[in-house]
Write a protein that binds this DNA or RNA. Structure first.
Length: 452
RNA sequence: GUGGGCGUAGCUCAGCUGGUAGAGCACCCGGUUGUGGUCCGGGAUGUCGCGGGUUCGAGUCCCGUCGCUCACCCCA
């Protein structure tokens, strides 16, 4: 730890080997799943005009009030690193006229998001989300689909201990009726200035306060669920029915509050019990007014964001590993200069033909090379030295067996033949036809046979 | 923005009432000439976060500072 050392900025999280493989695998699995549900990828900018979030996320939210990374570009425009995903998706859908085609528009995205908060476990200034949005369909079946997708995602990753919390915030009519009553209730409470200020911006926030005295005061506060109009009730009932029919367990949490202003009707949150204070591993809901608020058509939408960093923490907490560590087919261990060069070319041939191959770099001893092969989880190791190059016979040692095992022997070309094989292999990949020389066919065939 | 905890080898940490640093894991080498996993032996690494103070002497006490971490607010 030199004093000139430069460290990562406060509050960021980075994934380096070996945990980076887990991160990548999670993203891969979620992407595959989203495609199965009929969602297409969308790749969006990481910064947007500041206006977008002020209007889309809502001025009253903490996100906009104090957590945005906002800066001016050289042209004097105010830009902001995206604090969430939905607003940007809506902007892009409108701008690219995706809402003029077939509806609903179903997209998924992943990447980093930014909020200038005090970091703690599971909460970072740069964090990562995977999200989906379904835009332009207002019936409850799509609510069900989105929730089912999130639920399947956690299941597919192997998580067992998560729970789904569900409520309905109603439509604007229902909310107005409830808000009036709630404000009346809150006005009778004795609150400190800061809390009062917050309640003024959005009275629902008080339901989410973790301080016991506040919770005590809110015990008898009017609940939004009691103020839903018939349309909102019907919508919610169908969502619940579909969830029940598909055996997706949930609990109604009428005090659930989401941090973004745009949510209406169905809202939900997945929580995990082993994560500490930041227990939400994903959440979302319906946002029926958002698109018109941003200048688009009157189209409804629903989506979710899953916190990838928290999912990684949850996997760790449940001791689930989603990557296999037998990553290599063959690990080459060259033990002299000539063998090193030969190995470099041999590895190239095998890699071109789809085998996972690595070489013992930098280890001076044979034992060290073998240990490296073991650590990498290679299926076979292969020592290459004087004898092998002279006899043109390679012994592949099976690293998966315990105890004694007889090495399998294959014959190999010499260095100049290897060069020709590589040349012909390259021709294969370009033309798509099989130009591989006889030696090349024989070599690859021998090895693939061994591996199968 | 507020509060608690912690900063000692690459990692996890020990170091009682002050006497110039240790363990485990990891890493490297070796255990008869060229074969991993277990076992045994050996080895390298730290300005004890930084600065100042008290003291003959500070990782150990005091002050400051920086960093990390957990929690509140809030959220993924």
């Amino acid at each position: 730890m030199g004093k000139d050392q430069i460290n990562a900025p406060k509050g960021v999280i980075e994934y380096v080997p070996p945990s980076s493989s887990h991160f990548e695998e999670v993203v891969t699995l979620l992407s595959i799943l989203a495609k199965q549900f009929g969602y297409q990828p969308i790749v969006l900018p990481i910064f947007e005009e500041t206006n977008l979030f002020q209007r889309g996320v809502g001025e009253s939210t903490d996100v906009v009030q104090k957590e945005m990374y906002t800066f001016e570009d050289r042209g004097g425009r105010s830009l902001t690193l995206r604090p969430e995903g939905t607003a940007g998706v809506m902007r892009s859908v409108i701008e690219n006229n995706l809402d003029r085609g077939q509806l609903p528009v179903k997209v998924f995205y992943t990447g980093p998001f930014f909020r200038a908060e005090r970091p703690q476990k599971g909460r970072y200034r740069q964090f990562h989300q995977f999200g989906v949005e379904a835009i332009g369909y207002e019936d409850p079946e799509i609510d069900f689909e989105v929730i089912a997708l999130a639920n399947s995602a956690y299941q597919k990753l192997g998580l067992k201990q998560f729970t789904l919390q569900l409520t309905s915030l109603g439509d604007s009519q229902s909310r107005a009726a409830h808000r009036a009553e709630l404000v009346k209730y809150i006005s009778k409470l004795e609150l400190d200035d800061e809390t009062l200020q917050r309640a003024k911006l959005n009275p629902l926030r008080l339901f989410d306060d973790k301080r016991t005295e506040i919770q005590e005061m809110m015990k008898n506060a009017p609940i939004l669920l009691d103020y839903l109009n018939q349309d909102s009730i019907n919508h919610f009932e169908i969502v619940k029915k579909l969830l029940n029919s598909s055996s997706i367990e949930f609990e109604i949490n009428p005090r659930m509050v989401r941090g973004l202003d745009y949510y209406t009707k169905t809202t939900f949150e997945f929580v995990h019990p082993l994560l500490g204070a930041q227990s939400g591993i994903g959440g979302g809901g319906r946002y029926d007014g958002l698109m018109s608020e941003l200048g688009g058509q009157e189209l409804s939408g629903i989506g979710f964001g899953l916190g990838l960093d928290r999912i990684l923490l949850a996997l760790e907490a449940e001791k689930i590993s989603i990557v296999d560590n037998s990553q290599l087919d063959i690990f080459l261990v060259p033990i002299n200069q000539e063998a090193k060069e030969f190995s470099a070319l041999l590895a190239q041939v095998l890699r071109i033909h789809g085998l996972k191959v690595d070489i013992a770099y930098g280890n001076r001893s044979l034992k060290g090379g073998m240990k490296a092969a073991d650590k990498q989880g290679a299926k076979y190791s292969c020592v290459i030295g004087e004898d092998e190059l002279a006899s043109r016979q390679l012994s592949l040692k099976n690293m998966m067996n315990e105890g004694v095992n007889v090495p399998s022997t294959i014959s190999i070309p010499n260095l100049s033949q290897l060069e020709k094989i590589i040349a012909s292999s390259n021709a294969v990949s370009q033309k798509g036809s099989n130009n591989l020389s006889n030696e090349g066919i024989e070599l690859v065939h021998q090895i693939k046979k061994l591996l199968s």
